[in-house]
Simulated scan of single mutants.
Amino acid sequence: MFDLIPFERGTDGLFDEFSRLVNGGFWNGTDSFRTFRTDILDKGDRYVLRADLPGFQKQEININVEGDRLTLSAEHKEEFNENKKNYIRKERRYGAFSRSFDLSGIDSAGICARYSNGVLELELPKSAQAKSSQKRIEVN
C-alpha cells in the first residue's frame, strides 16, 4: 500500500508548506486555462513551433487562426466513472490548455501541422514582406 503513494523530496525550507498550498492545494479558478511548454525555432524561411501535449488525441487539439493570432488549445474530458470511490490516489488531470501566439510576419495560409508522440509541430512560413525586412546589424 505504501508504494502507491509517491514520496516527495523538499528543501525543508520555511515556506515549502506555504508554497505547496498556494501552488497546488487551492483551486484558483484558472486551472482549466493552464499553458503548455513550447519551443520556437527560426529556420530562415519559416519558424517551427513545437508544443508538448502528451496524452492528447489529435481530435482533442484545436488550432485556430483569427487575424494575426494563432491559438492552440487542447482539452481532456473526464468520462463519468461510477467507481470513483475505489481510487486510492487520483493525480491524472482533466481539463483545458490554451495558448496564443502573434502571427505578424507569417503567411497564415501556408501553416501546416503534425502531431506525433505527444508533440505538436507547426511550420509557420514567413511572409515575403517579413523575409525582405530582415537585415543584419554589425556590432562596433
Score class of each variant (00 low, 15 high):
Met1Ile: 06
Asp3His: 03
Asp3Val: 02
Leu4Gly: 02
Ile5Asn: 02
Ile5Trp: 08
Ile5Lys: 04
Phe7Ala: 04
Phe7Val: 09
Arg9Ser: 03
Gly10Gln: 03
Thr11Gln: 04
Thr11Cys: 06
Thr11Arg: 06
Gly13Ala: 04
Phe18Leu: 14
Phe18Gly: 00
Leu21Cys: 02
Leu21Pro: 00
Gly24Ala: 03
Gly24Ser: 05
Gly24Val: 07
Gly24Glu: 09
Gly24Leu: 05
Phe26Ser: 07
Asn28His: 12
Thr30Glu: 08
Asp31Gly: 05
Ser32His: 05
Ser32Arg: 06
Phe33Val: 04
Arg34Pro: 00
Arg34Ala: 12
Thr35Glu: 09
Thr35Trp: 07
Arg37Val: 12
Thr38Gln: 05
Asp39Gln: 03
Leu41Tyr: 11
Leu41Met: 06
Gly44Glu: 13
Asp45Ile: 10
Asp45Glu: 15
Arg46Phe: 01
Tyr47Met: 05
Leu49Gln: 10
Arg50Asn: 09
Ala51Leu: 00
Ala51Glu: 01
Asp52Asn: 06
Leu53Val: 01
Gly55Asn: 05
Gly55Leu: 07
Gln57Cys: 08
Gln57Ile: 07
Lys58Leu: 10
Lys58Asn: 13
Gln59Gly: 13
Glu60Met: 07
Glu60Thr: 04
Ile61Val: 10
Ile61Phe: 07
Asn62Gln: 12
Ile63Gly: 04
Asn64Ser: 11
Glu66Thr: 05
Asp68Arg: 11
Asp68His: 08
Arg69Ile: 15
Leu70Phe: 01
Thr71Asp: 02
Leu72His: 04
Ala74Gly: 14
Glu75Trp: 09
His76Pro: 04
His76Leu: 14
Glu78Arg: 12
Glu79Lys: 10
Glu79Phe: 11
Glu82Lys: 08
Glu82Pro: 11
Glu82Asp: 11
Asn83Pro: 01
Asn83Glu: 15
Lys84Pro: 00
Asn86Asp: 15
Asn86Ala: 15
Asn86Leu: 15
Arg89Phe: 00
Arg92Leu: 12
Tyr94Asp: 02
Tyr94Thr: 00
Gly95Ile: 10
Ser98Met: 14
Arg99Glu: 02
Ser100Arg: 09
Ser100Thr: 12
Ser100His: 07
Ser100Glu: 12
Gly105Lys: 05
Gly105His: 12
Ala109Asp: 15
Ala109Asn: 14
Gly110Ile: 07
Tyr115Val: 12
Ser116His: 03
Asn117Gln: 14
Asn117Cys: 11
Asn117Ile: 03
Gly118Arg: 06
Gly118Met: 11
Val119Asn: 04
Leu120His: 06
Leu120Ser: 10
Glu121Asn: 01
Leu122Glu: 00
Glu123Arg: 07
Gln129Trp: 08
Ala130Gln: 11
Ala130Tyr: 01
Lys131Ile: 15
Ser132Met: 13
Ser133Arg: 07
Lys135Asn: 10
Lys135Ala: 12
Arg136Tyr: 14
Arg136Ser: 11
